[in-house]
């Protein structure tokens, strides 16, 4: 289970894109706290603190206690936006956690014992189908990661959710099928050699038209 992390935030008086941009210019990340049948609260956090939490890799499944001018709230980040080019945080949504609440969260998968997998030792590739698994868990018992054991997996084998032991009270949200988490694929070298480099059509070849292609004939 992830431990509760303390965060300090300042209340944000003005909302809207102008105020949010002004906050970003001064090294802050605008954020909002909502939920638990209370009014939403606009806040801002320091960019350094946010980046540190994002780099942990468990940002979306960690419970935070945010101190906004002395008022503490237990929250979980629900979403965050990054700048598409600069990769800096733009905005964060925090959800207040009610007492005894159950939450749906995406928890990262941690692959263990790669050395004990005969398939990977033969040069196979771990093809990760799901980097995260969406689970439903009590707010106080959200796992920080889901450990997946690769022991004994050979080439062509796949690992499904049924092979994973989830902590007590934790259930996957997908229950209608035994979904795949990862497969051990044969490396490209074991497949037919040179098949990859010779794919595709001749350069400059024009594909067939959907309709008639003679409409623009005789123009050259």
């Amino acid at each position: 289970m992830s431990a509760t992390v303390q965060l300090k935030a300042e209340p944000r008086e003005k909302v809207g894109k102008g105020a949010a941009r002004a906050a970003r210019r001064s090294g802050l990340v605008p954020a909002v706290i909502y939920g638990d049948k209370k009014d939403p609260r606009s806040i801002s956090l320091t960019i350094r603190e946010v980046e540190k939490q994002l780099e942990s890799g468990h940002f979306l499944n960690t419970i935070y206690e945010i101190d906004v001018a002395g008022e503490k709230s237990r929250v979980i980040p629900r979403d965050y936006q990054m700048h598409p080019v600069k990769d800096v945080p733009m905005h964060i949504d925090f959800l207040r956690i009610a007492k005894g609440a159950r939450l749906v969260v995406a928890v990262p998968v941690a692959f263990q014992n790669e050395d004990s997998s005969p398939g990977l030792r033969k040069g196979g590739v771990l093809n990760i189908v799901r980097h995260e698994i969406e689970i439903s868990a009590p707010a106080d018992a959200i796992p920080s990661e889901i450990a997946v054991d690769l022991t004994g997996l050979d080439l062509g084998d796949s690992l499904h959710i049924s092979a994973v032991t989830l902590p007590e009270g934790v259930t996957p949200t997908i229950t209608d099928r035994d979904f795949t988490i990862a497969t051990i694929a044969a490396p490209a070298g074991l497949k037919s050699e040179g098949e990859e480099d010779e794919e595709g059509a001749e350069p400059g070849e024009v594909p067939a038209m959907h309709g008639g292609d003679e409409e623009e004939a005789g123009e050259e």
């Binding site: 059509a201 594909p207 623009e216």
Partner: peptide, 12 residues
């Protein structure tokens, strides 16, 4: 090389 299998119009 990658290219569409078929297109509605030849030129854009």
């Amino acid at each position: 090389m990658l290219q569409p299998k078929r297109t509605k119009f030849r030129k854009q």
